[in-house]
Structure formats: structure tokens, C-alpha cells
Amino acid sequence: MNTNTLNEQQALRKDDLVLYGEHFSSRLLLGTSRYPSPQILEEAVLASKPAMITVSLRRQGATGQSENTFWDLLKKMSVPVLPNTAGCHSPQEVITTAQMAREVFETHWIKLELIGDDYTLQPDTLRLVDTAKILINDGFKVLPYCTEDLILCQRLVDVGCQAVMPWAAPIGTGQGPLNPFAMKLLRERLQVPLLVDAGLGLPSHACAVMEWGFDGVLLNTAVALADHPIAMAKAFALATQAGRAAYLSGAMPAQESAQASTPLVGTPFWHQS
């Protein structure tokens, strides 16, 4: 084994996702909603081995879910949980929900969702930064769900967010990245980990954003609503790894004109015209 091969292997082994100083071997974060059954959810998590799984809080007894069943499943899966503030429309709702999540789940991680519109589920960008700052000051490790706006993401970093999570497309739409230009610009300009959250539909979407240099992906519906969620979870895990490997490998630049890959010298039957 030559030195270059050994160095490549060493580099890949050290390629953990690092968020707020914590190391994760996977760059896939997986949501837990909308699966056909708890068993399929569990097997999808086993198949994809995500770094974290997202969870939420709702009024006791309201959803019809058996809270004890889900709680037991969480403990059984033993995967780090990332509580979200889904459905919150005001900074106070976010802050209170985050504090409740911290107590219940015994974690300082929080996926900050502050929703501005119930139809598009887009974040309330005008109040997101101040809300993030309050949570950061209260000791939370904040992963903010945001748009691909450079200024918004920069301001989130300025107030202490050590990672940001721009959407690719509206939640649950599966459309894939709608604004590649803006997303690539985020990678060029920001030094913090970037995770794409929301709107991914295919493993190729996840692969693409990882090739651009994004640090991870968070997805739910694309797996949960697939015909075969367990296989799709595995596909997303592989695609995320493939995209990351491609990014680290340094892809060739795209060219306008063709360039033969087979040597021209010695081409049979060729003659000077």
C-alpha cells in the first residue's frame, strides 16, 4: 500500500461531522415523522445510521400516537435526539418549547423552527436571528432552520450559531435544491458547518449538495413516504457518503469542449487529409 493510499484512508477516517464540538460519524440527520409504522421507522434508522434523529413535543394525547410507545422506541434506538420547535409562530413559543424539550429529552440540542407562513412553512426570517440569540445565550446548541439567504445565515452565525441549516425547498415538497446558486454561495462565504434541511426528495439531491461542500443533510418525508422507506433510508445514507467523498476528492472542472480520453496517437486508419 503506497503512502498516498494510506493518507487518503486516514483523511477519510477523520472526516467526522463536527457540530458544537461534538463528533458524528454520519452526515445524515433523519426525521421520525410520517412513517407507516414505528417498526419501519426503527428499521430505517438502523439501515441509515443517522447522526441524530429529530423529535418533537405535542399536547399529551392530542396526536393519537402512543407517547409511551414512541418514548420506549427512542430509548431503544439510542440515537442522539434533536428536538425541534416545529409549529412555533412566535419567539416566545420557540423559547418555551425549547426549554420544555431540554427538560424532557435531557439535551441542549435544539432545531430552531420559527414558522412565518402556514402554507409555505418558510421560516420567519425577520425574527429568527433574535430568537436564535436568546437560545444561544440560554445554553442551547442551536441548529436553525433557515432560508438560503446569505445575510440571514451570516447574522445567525454572528449571534453564535455554530452551524446553519438552509432549506433546499419547502418542507415536505421533495423538490430538491431550488436555488443552487445561493446555496453554493453560502458554502463559499461561510466557514461554519452547513446542513441542508427540508425539501430534499431524492438521494441524488443529497449527493448533489454534499458535492457542493455542504456538511450534512436533514430529511424526513423523502424517506418516510417512499414506497420502501427502509431501502430509501439506506440509499440516502449512501448518497450522502458518496457526495461527501466526491467533494473531498476534488472533482474535475466542467469543460465546454470535448476532450478525448483515449490517446489520439496511434489511432488506426487515421491519415492526414
Binding site: 426525521g31 421520525t32 415523522s33 410520517r34 412513517y35 421507522l41 429529530t54 423529535v55 418533537s56 413535543l57 405535542r58 399536547r59 399529551q60 396526536t63 400516537q65 407517547e67 414512541f70 418514548w71 427512542l74 428536538p83 425541534n84 416545529a86 418549547t97 420544555m100 427538560e103 424532557v104 429529552f105 418542507i171 415536505g172 424526513n220 418525508t221
Partner: peptide
């Protein structure tokens, strides 16, 4: 906080939310 449940006196029209873990995206 849980530690204050026994000390927290309720008032007329208090809006109490009791929430539990559920699946989330």
C-alpha cells in the same frame, strides 16, 4: 421546571400546556 410543580399556584384562566415527546421532522 419539574422541580416547581408542587410550589406553583394556579390562577384563574391560566393556560396550561402539558406536552409530550412525539415524532418530528
Amino acid at each position: 421546571p419539574k422541580s416547581l410543580y408542587g410550589q406553583c399556584t394556579l390562577a384563574e384562566n391560566d393556560q396550561i400546556e402539558v406536552i409530550s415527546p412525539v415524532t418530528g421532522g
